[in-house]
């Protein structure tokens, strides 16, 4: 089963190497890993999608916790969460197919971010299923390049008992 972990880490040099090294060393499979800093520049947040049964996930969790730079791990797979991924696709677009592609972009609420003589570069965000579907739609036209950010995710609302700088959920609406 695939699990989505959100991991808060100290923003120190080498922290990504520590996490990535741990996964490869212990034979855990990463599907995707996205990382960037949070509102606190000293803290980064990783969204890691990892494949494994419950026992493997328990080990992933515990081994990650052993890293001194890891502050907090949340396996949000079973909770309600919002996730997004961004993809950029450079697709062959001849005069004959250009309008059809643009229609698809509309349907998927994407944006064309670059127009070349023979190509269009399109940006789409969404959950993984939508990105996959969009990729499949474009495949017949010929995909020249594709890059995905990997999934980022966040829990919906506030978990009961979670502190968030002293604000209650009502205050934030």
């Amino acid at each position: 089963m695939r699990h989505t972990l959100t991991v808060l880490v100290e923003n120190t040099p080498g922290v990504l190497a520590r996490v990535a090294g741990l996964f490869s060393r212990r034979g855990f499979n990463i599907d995707s890993l996205a990382v960037g800093r949070t509102d606190n520049p000293a803290v980064s947040r990783m969204t890691i999608v990892v494949e494994g049964d419950d026992q493997v996930l328990e080990q992933v969790n515990k081994q990650l916790h052993k890293l001194i730079d890891v502050i907090k791990i949340n396996d949000i797979t079973k909770d309600a969460y919002v996730d997004r991924e961004l993809v950029m696709i450079k697709v062959y677009a001849e005069a004959a197919t250009r309008s059809e592609i643009m229609q698809l972009v509309d349907i998927f609420r994407g944006r064309i971010v670059d127009v070349g003589r023979k190509t269009l570069t399109i940006e789409v965000t969404g959950d993984e299923g939508k990105i996959d579907a969009f990729e499949n739609c474009l495949r017949p036209f010929g995909i020249k390049e594709l890059v995905r950010t990997g999934k980022i995710a966040m829990l919906r609302g506030l978990k009961p008992g979670t502190k968030n700088n002293g604000y209650k959920e009502e205050d934030m609406v």
Binding site: Q55, E58, Q59, K62, Q63, H65, K66
Partner: peptide, 8 residues
């Protein structure tokens, strides 16, 4: 003392 040893 090491939680990661449990169930490993």
């Amino acid at each position: 003392i090491d939680p990661a040893e449990i169930g490993k």
